[in-house]
Design a protein around this nucleic acid. Structure first.
Length: 578
RNA sequence: CGGGGCGUUGCCUAGUGGCUAAGGCGCUUGCUUUGGGAGCAAGAAAUCGGAGGUUCGAGUCCUCUCGCCCCGACCA
């Protein structure tokens, strides 16, 4: 490609709106251009990188038996109603009606579609297992896009779906994907770790997320300092050291004026925060299975005073579709009092979720649901009841539940995920097969996603320096950046043709610009191999060779045989990422 | 959806009630220059996001609205 012909151009300054450096560099170098919040155009350089990433994904999916398909972005709402997600997913999914008023949606993932398709294709155990994937556009109306391609509303995702007759089969393909994902990320050059995760809106049990650890990440990742335990904080387990506080004593209400926080309360009563039970009030959204209508119910999460509630855990324990902070009036309506709240004396329809730290302790201090009053000696089971669950948020320094060593906390960006779905979708949509005995059985499914654009965004965060991007050759838009400084371009043209004929992908800077401009742009775009032809070197019969990974070292490359030598260099670089 | 911020030319910014809206980068033309963002000269490009209002006078103040960004809530 001739740089003089390139559709995009480079910017000398960071755009004001870019909140991460990788984003700024992708914009400045002409990979992407924003059209609206979370909506981007991929420019030619961006497309070339994305295509290479997609090709790597294809190869690795094919290698484990994946068959590529392409499903429609627009889905009839019916199939989403069948699984209930039409109702359980809120504004994140775009809905509209077609010309005759049929409900339609923009598919934000394709479990419904693929299950529907598979139900027409699959009838017999002899056809299973199956594994299909697609690379395709999704629209998710995220309330808060940010950081360029890290979090967008329209994005390209590789999504894959497995169909099996047994859990063993599912585990096998899950395992194969688990490793294939690492191959994909390794070939792209992105360091990732797999962490145990919540299955979120996908449903199902076992799930992993692939995390690129970075301060710009929005997820909190718990890792053990000693063993290989890792998990998203949303689900991370840790050891709770529980102190019983003695045999249950009689419940007593006492005046505790001005103690609406746990610190104030513990101080006032001269007890440890660990002996207090604090309450978090949330409004949960549930879907009535009969009417498919949304209902709101108040949830109280009870946790020991020295811990914080992990809302995701609370939501799962309460089996709510969504949570939001409850208003004080909503709390009072259920006979509880914010700041002095507890499940004791609460209205009957309140969902009570009690952290095991509180359930396992005795004689806790808890709110009396009256301003300025607390109970002492409250005991779970005697004074109130509810669902016992782990709803506590893990923190750095907590104890690993696997090996007993200290847990660490990191930020991470989720670039991929894999879910064991089980039969949730096949049962809801009647995807069954006949087994050897002629009996109908639901197909066991898995789903596997990679955010393609997000992967590029993560690479831009990982591979950069003060001069610009320096993407690995496996995802770089071109292999070679050929900077010509010759006044007479005839020889450069010839060399460019030879390089192209040798099937090397070359960005050829043939512009009538000063050397400084060309070098600065070459640094910014960060094509891994750079050759420069100037008048001096030309006289001596040499090209200059630099690697973007080490700009301070200049190599000399004889023009004679340069094409073969470059082919070797490129091949070596490429093979280091296979 | 709450809280905050910002919309001035392709990009970055100045302008804080008073003349024809200013500068840098980029762009066009000419001449010069040619190894790390060149020089000189001449140009083009902005209904100051939009609507309404206050005022003798509004980019500037007020109201509404749209868009974008940030912090939360939420998500791949």
């Amino acid at each position: 490609m001739r740089m003089s012909q390139l559709f995009s151009r480079t910017l000398r300054e960071d755009p004001a709106y870019a909140d991460t450096r990788g984003y700024a560099l992708l914009v400045r170098s002409g990979f992407i251009k924003q059209l609206g919040a979370g909506i981007f155009t991929l420019l030619p350089l961006g497309v070339r990188s994305i295509r290479k990433i997609e090709q790597i994904i294809r190869e690795e999916m094919d290698a484990i038996g994946g068959q590529e398909i392409e499903m429609p972005v627009v889905n009839p709402a019916d199939i989403w109603k069948e699984t209930g997600r039409y109702y359980s997913i809120d504004k994140e999914m775009a809905r509209f009606q077609d010309r005759v008023g049929r409900d339609m949606v923009l598919a934000m993932t394709h479990e419904e579609c693929v299950t529907s398709v598979a139900s027409h294709e699959i009838d017999s155990y002899k056809q299973l297992p199956q594994f299909v994937y697609q690379i395709q556009t999704k629209w998710r109306d995220d309330p808060r896009p940010r950081a360029g391609l890290i979090r967008v509303r329209e994005f390209t995702m590789k999504d894959a779906y497995s169909f099996d007759t047994s859990m063993e089969g599912l585990e096998k393909i899950y395992e194969e994907n688990y490793h294939a994902y690492f191959k994909v990320f390794n070939r792209c050059g992105l360091p990732t770790i797999a962490v145990g995760s919540d299955s979120g809106m996908m449903g199902g049990k076992v799930a992993h997320e692939y995390m690129y650890l970075s301060p710009i990440g929005e997820d909190s990742i718990v890792t053990c300092s000693s063993c290989d335990y890792t998990a998203n904080r949303q689900v991370a387990a840790f050891v709770k050291h529980i102190e019983k506080n003695g045999e249950p004593a009689p419940l007593e209400k006492i005046a505790t004026p001005g103690t609406s926080t746990i610190e104030e309360l513990a101080e006032f009563l001269s007890v440890s925060e660990k002996q207090c039970a604090k309450a978090l009030f949330m409004m949960g959204t549930f879907v009535d299975p009969e009417t498919n209508e949304e209902v709101q119910r108040l949830i109280i999460g009870v946790i020991r005073g020295d811990m914080e509630v992990e809302e995701n855990k609370l939501q799962n324990a309460a089996r709510a579709n969504a949570l939001r902070t409850a208003h004080p009036d909503e709390i009072k309506e259920k006979k509880m009092f914010p700041g002095y709240g507890s499940p004791i004396g609460a209205a009957e329809d309140v969902i009570v979720i009690v952290d095991d730290s509180v359930a396992g302790s005795s004689n806790m201090v808890a709110g009396a649901n009256e301003e300025g009053y607390h109970f002492i000696n409250t005991n779970f089971g005697r004074d109130y009841s509810g669902t016992v669950a782990d709803i506590a948020s893990a923190r750095a320094g907590d104890t690993c539940s696997v090996c007993g060593h200290e847990l660490k906390m990191n930020r991470g960006v989720e670039v991929g995920n894999i879910f064991q779905l089980g039969t949730r979708y096949s049962e809801a949509m009647g995807l069954t097969y006949q087994d050897e005995n002629g009996r109908r059985q639901p197909v066991i499914m898995g789903s596997y996603g990679i955010g393609v654009g997000r992967l590029l965004a993560c690479l831009a965060e990982e591979y950069q320096d003060e001069n610009g991007l320096k993407l690995p050759i496996s995802v770089s838009p071109y292999q070679i950046h050929f900077v010509s400084l010759m006044k007479d371009q005839a020889f450069s043209e010839e060399l460019y043709k030879k390089l192209s004929d040798a099937k090397l992908s070359v960005l050829y800077d043939d512009r009538k610009e000063s050397p400084g401009v060309k070098f600065a742009d070459a640094d910014l775009l960060g094509i891994p191999v750079r050759i420069t032809l100037g008048n001096r070197g030309f006289k001596e019969g040499n090209l200059e060779l630099k690697y973007r990974s080490d700009l301070s070292t200049m190599h000399t490359l004889p023009i004679e045989g340069a094409v073969d030598e470059l082919k070797k260099i490129v091949e070596e670089l490429e093979s280091s990422l296979r």
